[in-house]
Design a protein around this nucleic acid. Structure first.
Lengths: 262, 262
DNA sequence: CATTGATGTTGCAATATGTGGCAGTGAACC
DNA sequence: GGTTCACTGCCACATATTGCAACATCAATG
């Protein structure tokens, strides 16, 4: 009510500080220009905020902005830098399919992690994931609600799995799901390493409005033992390089479209 | 001014307070100008409201408005560096209470993270936690099965919370639980920042065979708003330095024993 | 009708924010 | 290596917004 004609209310200092920390945890660093534009305040105001927080020892000021002290986990940053270009491109393409306000499911895996990283620009998303690292990463992004699916943790995947996870999954209404996979087999199907993984992914296809598989090129033409149920009902497969014509054709015949990320 | 009889349109104080809290929980902070415009009252009235609520300890006043307390808790990464030595000692003492084969619940928080780190020597444990970082850490330790409790992730705690978490918790038979807390109040009770947190911890006390609180000395004599249900049924409180005699005595009278880690 | 409690009004002090000038930094370029 | 140039940091001052206290107003109440 009261169609107040004043400009959109400015964020008070604590809110700015909160946002700064969220961005710091999500991205490791923030820039003065970026924050000034976001809050629609002058750069000086941001600089004063950063100075204050820096005096409190809560962040470090660097040229152009601020950085957190604790570096982002080394193991993760290393792994995600393998084939960084390809994964980032896949991530970007995937994020481009998401609209503000959607409920998004993110599978575990390094490629889906890249999708998560590309999604930080979007707002007002509800994220649903079984991956510890994805949850940890996205929970600090402002405007995102993250639901972690419970279950027994698989150390290899660093993600929950098992019956509890299937059960929790079934409670969500998911608009769009991004799944990883073990391989893209020569007959154009995504396959998996484990029975439980295949089952979980197959169910998600049935649950989600649209399901996309994200696979970097190292998975092409490999073979893993388990077919994923409902694969033909997936909306698409997002890859970073064009697969061999035979493989592409086999895939398209199954149903899903093929999206090649630049 | 405005002799017009429009009382019906005006919101009385309790209604304003209600709305203030609604906005606080939705956006973390509110501004005096915004509220004054919304309710069509003077800024002074709003300021008096905020002053009142602040005196009750229900919010914090900042320049231009008010902010909720909890999110201004220092970020996780920073909290873990405070009093690292004390936390490590607490962790060791806590791990000493655990025997091989037990089912262990670990709460979220930096001190419980220290407990997790001290527990890597033990074998054949089943860990149950809502904390993303604890799950991530312990899932790589051989001989440990880690169950992650699902739920909506609280970015400040980096842990799941909410109804799903309570629900998942109830399914476990826990031998020993280690819980954090917001403060050790002067009357010898552990208190919490949030309603949900207090509730969750209270239930765990009821569920677990033995429950210990782990609190480093920075929490002594502080005040946070919420009492933890069933606190008197906790087995003990593990701290890193001897609290004041009055505080220690108050605690012992409640029931739990006091364990001081070297 | 006096009292009480909530709210409005006003003036001034304190604080936050914006602006512009100038020096420093870093990266691309010759 | 040195130079240019866009960006950034820093300072001083101007402006806007807010805080505060003292007093005024109004309705309700006994």
């Amino acid at each position: 009510m009261s169609p107040v004609s004043r400009q959109s209310a400015r964020a008070l200092a604590p809110r700015r500080h909160d946002e700064i920390f969220r961005r710091l945890s999500a991205q490791g660093s923030v820039s003065v220009a970026e924050l000034a534009a976001f809050f629609d305040v002058s750069r000086e105001t941001i600089r004063r905020d950063l100075k204050l927080l820096s005096d409190q020892g809560r962040l470090g000021i660097v040229h152009g902005g601020a950085a957190r002290f604790e570096p982002s986990e080394p193991a993760m940053s290393l792994r995600s830098q393998e084939n960084a270009g390809g994964k980032a491109a896949i991530g970007k393409a995937a994020a481009g399919l998401v609209r503000d306000g959607m409920v998004v499911f993110l599978d575990s895996g390094t490629t889906t992690m890249a999708v998560a990283q590309a999604m930080t620009e979007l707002r007002d998303l509800t994220i649903c994931t079984a991956s510890l690292k994805i949850a940890l990463h996205l929970c600090h992004v402002p405007g995102m609600r993250v639901h972690m699916l419970g279950g027994e943790i698989d150390p290899g995947e660093e993600a929950a799995s098992g019956i509890d996870t299937l059960d929790a999954m079934a409670r969500f209404r998911v608009d769009i799901a991004f799944l990883g996979g073990g391989a893209l087999s020569p007959d154009g199907e995504v396959t998996d390493f484990t029975r439980a993984g295949a089952e979980q992914r197959g169910r998600m296809i049935a649950l989600a409005g649209k399901t996309y598989f994200v696979l970097d090129s190292s998975k092409f033409g490999k073979l893993t033992p388990l077919r994923i149920p409902n694969f033909d009902r997936a909306a698409g497969v997002i890859v970073d390089t064009i697969p061999e014509p035979a493989l592409a054709e086999a895939l398209l015949q199954k149903g899903p479209e093929l999206i090649v990320a630049a």
